[in-house]
Amino acid sequence: MAHGLSQERIVLMIATGLFILFSVTLNGFLSADNLLSLVQNVSILGILGVGMAIAIIGRGIDLSILSTMPVSVAWLLNLINGGMPIWAALLCALALVVVIGAINGFLIAYVEIPAIFATLAMGIVVYGFGKAYLAPIDAVYITRTDAWFYSIGSGRVLGVPTPVIVFALVAAAAYLFLRYAKLGRFIYGMGDNPLTARITGIPVRPMMLVQYIIISVIALIAGIVMATALSGINTRLALSTMVYDVILVVVLGGIGLSGGKGGIRNVVVGTLLIGILLNGMTIMNLTYTVQSILKSTILLLAIVADTLLNPRDEQTAQHGDI
């Protein structure tokens, strides 16, 4: 495909076209409040998309991200509501997600379970463990907290919702990490060709641990933004289909499932398209079922396009990529 018609550019053109179409045909779409709401609503999806992008670029995938996020934050809120200082509760939640990420990385790197199966099973374990020991009640609400913590998801800076700012900061940090840090380049090397990466001296197995720990920490950040925006979190989110929305954002933006390709800019482009689409469908009062059908169709088309643009090799198939 010509450089001028890369998947990223095509998606950006479609997003621009949808924005113009909805602006002309849907009442209230161009209002300032709706545009801010549009960006705010997809900020959490975008943050999770950054984490998923790091997994896929390294020739992996993390299906446990949607269990890690609500379970860790529900436990965090329970600790805060129980009287623990916020900084101590944050450290506990951080330790939990680091352990989850390390276990994911260990199963994939050392036990050599394909990432899709290891993280799928780990997601079920995390949800079950969380329901049994950390957050027995589905919905956990914020009953006491400091203003600065609450403002993470519900505040504004110069009129810009703080979730948008957090998304921008996470995306910028991930961009700098992948582009300029040695560990970030290692992740690209692992995704491009794991065997060559080992031969050239990249510590592939330890890097997988680092990779999945980073993803789990990003999931915690997304959960904190969601909880402070909604004054609580529901652990049943782990059973939702939101993980497919996250994959949709990443693949649609142009990050190849074969690994080693794409970047954070692709996540931003994919998030913009999905945000505009979801916002437009909501204004049109389309039912949840119809929206799910449309999103599923788009995901299927995106995977087909990715297969044509980024053919998978034998190593990719052996790794268990989707």
Rank of each mutant, 00 (worst) to 15 (best):
L66E: 15
L66V: 15
L66W: 10
P70Q: 08
S72K: 02
V73Y: 00
V73G: 03
W75V: 11
W75Q: 13
L76C: 06
L77F: 00
L77W: 00
L77Y: 03
N78L: 03
N78V: 08
L79A: 13
L79R: 14
G83D: 11
G83Y: 00
G83I: 02
G83W: 00
M84Q: 06
W87D: 14
W87R: 11
A89S: 09
L91F: 12
L91I: 10
C92D: 14
C92H: 15
C92N: 15
A93R: 01
A93W: 02
L94V: 10
L94C: 14
L94P: 12
A95R: 10
L96F: 13
V97M: 06
V97N: 01
V98S: 08
V99Q: 10
I100A: 11
I100L: 14
N104V: 02
G105V: 00
G105M: 05
F106W: 04
I108Q: 04
Y110M: 03
V111K: 01
V111L: 12
E112L: 09
P114W: 09
A115L: 04
F117K: 10
A118V: 06
T119H: 09
T119N: 09
L120K: 01
L120G: 08
L120E: 01
L120I: 05
G123I: 06
G123N: 08
G123K: 05
G123D: 06
V125Q: 07
V125E: 11
V126S: 10
Y127K: 12
Y127C: 12
G128F: 07
G128H: 12
F129S: 15
G130D: 12
G130W: 07
